[in-house]
């Protein structure tokens, strides 16, 4: 298996008229890696994917996909090895699921023999495969979309908002397929507006805002970079001692028996030790780590302030 990067972008820019959709993005994707691209609508994720698919030309910087210019003369060869699931995927409603998949397989120059199994794999059984797409639910269309992206065992997969319309069980099986592909050496790029869902799925996260890359790293690194406060929720055995606790940490008195404290990630353990050694008997103690959405919001807020 080759270890050369599947995607290499250097200071890539894309301008549509006056609107700068992508501004100076550096991105390197490797085989066997699942990377999440996170950002609001209009953050430049879809524009970046279109560039990598060779559907548009960059207005600045350089971009190589599987070692070649995706919009160059080698485009057809590259696209045979790329799978793409667009956001809000649409199909021709008059075709059945199987006919549709056969159509796309032919376009990639693939035999159509294994298509029934492929549909089975994404959860579209024999009965559903023979029905017209016009009768499909959103989740079924999404699964059909995934199956067409998986045609021909692609080395590079772009999945734009792949789990919209999927129920939690399907979402799990969807991510199982993604993991399997990644372990097989494919590069998977997942696009999403929500980070929470990607916890445990993505090896690396790239946060985009207004066409710029604002943060990159694995989730632990992003946590560290954001350095958001950890919150502690403490409930003393004797409710009247809540005030004592507030006074101890120099915070204004709070209503109710629960005291909310916050500290930086590095101070978390010393604070816990201090709390336990303070002599005030505690009934319950809850540590609330910043959620992925908090971290995401932090990076976007920082960018907006800059």
């Amino acid at each position: 298996m080759s270890t050369a990067p599947t995607v290499e972008a250097r200071a890539v820019c894309k301008r549509y008229g006056r609107h700068e959709a992508v501004r100076g993005v550096d991105l390197t994707l490797h085989p066997g890696e699942c990377v999440a691209l996170v950002g609001h609508n209009g953050a430049g994720k879809s524009s970046l994917i279109k560039l990598m698919l060779g559907l548009t030309h960059p207005t600045g910087g350089s971009l190589h996909v599987l070692g070649q210019d995706p919009a160059g003369p080698q485009a057809a060869r590259i696209r045979r090895q790329v799978g793409f699931l667009p956001e809000n995927v649409a199909f021709h409603p008059g075709m059945t699921g199987l006919e549709c998949l056969d159509f796309y397989a032919r376009l990639k120059g693939l035999p159509t023999a294994g298509n029934r199994d492929l549909l089975e794999r994404v959860g579209l059984g024999r009965e559903a495969a023979g029905k017209r797409i016009g009768t499909y639910s959103k989740g079924m269309r999404q699964r059909l979309g995934l199956s067409q992206a998986l045609l021909g065992a692609p080395r590079l997969l772009f999945l734009d908002e792949p789990t919209t319309g999927l129920d939690p069980a399907l979402r799990q099986s969807f991510y199982a397929i993604v993991r399997e592909l990644r372990d097989g050496g494919a590069t998977v790029l997942l696009c999403s507006h929500a980070l929470t869902e990607l916890e445990g799925q993505a090896d690396r996260v790239v946060v985009m805002n207004r066409g710029r890359k604002v943060a990159e790293g694995c989730l632990a690194t992003l946590r560290q970079l954001a350095d958001l406060p950890v919150r502690l929720r403490v409930r003393p055995v004797d409710g009247t001692q809540a005030g004592t606790l507030c006074a101890l940490y120099g915070i204004p008195a709070q209503d109710g028996p629960v005291v909310a404290l916050s500290c930086s990630g590095a101070d978390k353990l010393p604070l816990l030790r201090h709390l336990l050694e303070s002599g005030i008997p505690l009934e319950d103690l809850e540590v609330v780590q910043p959620s992925l959405d908090d971290i995401y919001a932090h990076f976007l807020a920082r960018e907006d302030a800059a």
Binding site: L53, L55, A75, A76, R77, R79, R80, V82, F84, P86, N88, V89, A90, F91, H92, Y104, L107, K108, G109, Q148
Partner: peptide
């Protein structure tokens, strides 16, 4: 949106 998907093929 079917054109986008079609053109992502070879």
């Amino acid at each position: 949106g079917t054109m986008l998907l079609l053109l992502s093929y070879p």
